[in-house]
C-alpha cells in the first residue's frame, strides 16, 4: 500500500506524514527537491497549479491519496482559491482516476464548506448555501469536484479550526490567534458575532488522529469536530487568561462589546482608510470570517464517531485557556 500525500510540507500534511511514518508514503510538496527522505518517505516536487503535476509519478503505485494541499487563508482572493483549491483538486482527481489500485481518495476539507447555512449541519454533501469568503467557497467546490461524478472511493474529512498542538503550544498562527492578539493589544474592543455561536476548535493531534482513523473507514463525508465552545465563552476564557498578566492589567483594557453585523462591517469599512498603523491590516484579517460568527451552526458527528472508535471530545475551554496562556507567555511573537 502506497499513500500519496499532497501538501505534505504544510502544517497538517507534515503531521499526517509523521503519523504514517512506518508506511510507504510519497510526500508531494510544492518546490521540494526530488530526493528520498531519511525515513524512507519519498519526496516529489508537485505544483498543483501546473498543467500536469503528476506526470512523473506512476499511478499504478498509488493505493491511497490524502489531498491536503490547499490555500487555507480566509482572506484568499477568488482567483487564487480557484486555481489552488478547486483546479488543483481537479488535477488530483484526474490523477486519482488513473490510479487503478486506488482504495481511498481522502480530501481534507473544512467544516466551513457549509457556508452560510445555520443550525444542524449533517455529514452529507452540501448544496450551495452561499459563502462568507472565497476560501469556504473553494473548499465546497473542491468537495464537489471529488464527489461528482461519483465513482471514486472518496472520503471527505471536514476539519475544525486547529489552534494548537496537544501540549497547548501553537504551531501555526491563524485567524483565531490573530483575533486573540487584537483583543490583548487593545486594537479591537468590539466582538463580531453572536456570543452563543459555537466554535469548533481542536488540536493538531485530534485532527491528525481523525484523518488517519478515517483512512480505513467507509468512504463518505465526516465532520471532525471535537467539543464546541461558544464564541462568548471563548472570549471570556481568553480575557480570564489576559487578566492574570500584569502587563495586560496595567493597561486595564475592557472586555469587548458584542456588536451587530452592520456595525462590524462599518468598522472594517472605516478602518480601510486608517492606513499605516496596525489596526487596518488586523481588522482586514478578521473581517473575512467575522460574518461566519453570526451564523450559528451545530456540526453533527454521528458518522465520525461510528467510524472512529478512538473518538474523544476534548474540553474546549481548557484548550482555549492553554492556547491563550501560551500566546501571552510568548507575547504573541511567533509560532513555535
Amino acid at each position: 500500500m502506497t499513500t500519496l500525500i499532497t501538501g505534505a510540507g504544510g502544517y497538517l500534511g507534515r503531521r499526517i506524514a509523521a503519523a504514517l511514518h512506518d508506511e510507504d508514503v510519497i510526500l508531494a510538496m510544492r518546490g521540494a527537491d526530488k530526493r528520498e527522505r531519511p525515513g524512507a518517505q519519498e519526496v516529489i516536487p508537485i505544483d498543483l497549479c501546473e498543467e500536469n503535476p503528476f506526470a512523473e509519478l506512476d499511478p499504478r503505485r498509488i493505493t491511497r491519496i490524502i489531498h491536503a494541499a490547499a490555500v487555507i487563508r480566509f482572506d484568499v482572493d477568488r482567483d487564487t482559491a480557484r486555481r489552488v483549491n478547486v483546479a488543483g483538486t481537479a488535477r488530483v482527481r484526474e490523477f486519482a482516476e488513473r490510479c487503478e489500485r486506488l482504495e481511498r481518495f481522502v480530501l481534507l476539507s473544512t467544516l466551513y464548506s457549509a457556508g452560510r447555512r445555520q443550525g444542524d449541519v449533517r455529514e452529507v454533501r452540501h448544496d450551495d448555501a452561499g459563502f462568507v469568503n472565497h476560501y469556504e467557497w473553494s473548499k465546497w467546490a473542491a468537495e464537489e469536484c471529488v464527489l461528482e461524478p461519483p465513482g471514486l472511493p472518496v472520503t471527505v474529512v471536514r476539519l475544525p479550526t486547529v489552534i494548537s498542538e496537544d501540549d497547548g503550544t501553537v504551531g501555526q498562527y491563524n485567524a483565531f490567534h490573530h483575533t486573540i492578539r487584537l483583543y490583548y493589544s487593545g486594537l479591537l474592543t468590539l466582538l463580531p458575532g453572536d456570543p452563543a455561536t459555537p466554535l469548533s476548535l481542536a488540536t493538531a493531534g485530534f485532527t491528525v488522529d481523525a484523518v488517519t482513523a478515517l483512512l480505513d473507514a467507509e468512504p463518505g463525508i465526516y465532520q471532525a469536530c471535537s467539543g464546541p465552545v461558544s464564541l462568548g465563552t471563548a472570549v471570556d476564557t481568553a480575557f480570564s487568561v489576559f487578566e492574570r498578566d500584569a502587563d495586560f492589567m496595567r493597561r486595564m483594557l475592557p472586555r469587548p462589546v458584542p456588536c451587530d453585523q452592520a456595525s462590524f462591517h462599518d468598522m472594517v469599512s472605516a478602518a480601510r482608510a486608517l492606513r499605516g498603523g496596525p489596526l487596518q491590516p488586523a481588522l482586514a484579517s478578521v473581517a473575512p470570517f467575522a460574518e461566519q460568527l453570526y451564523l450559528s451552526k451545530s456540526f453533527r458527528t454521528e458518522r465520525l464517531r461510528a467510524a472512529w472508535p478512538g473518538y474523544r471530545t476534548a474540553d474546549p475551554v481548557a484548550l482555549v485557556e492553554s492556547v491563550c496562556a501560551h500566546l501571552v507567555e510568548r507575547r504573541f511573537n511567533a509560532a513555535r
Binding site: L187, R251, M252, L253, A271, L274
Partner: peptide, 18 residues
C-alpha cells in the same frame, strides 16, 4: 485609563468603542 496614557492612534481608535 492611565494604563493607556501612551496609547498610539490605533489603540485609541480600538478602545474607543467599548
Amino acid at each position: 485609563n492611565g494604563g493607556l496614557a501612551r496609547a498610539g492612534d490605533d489603540e485609541t481608535v480600538g478602545t474607543y468603542f467599548a
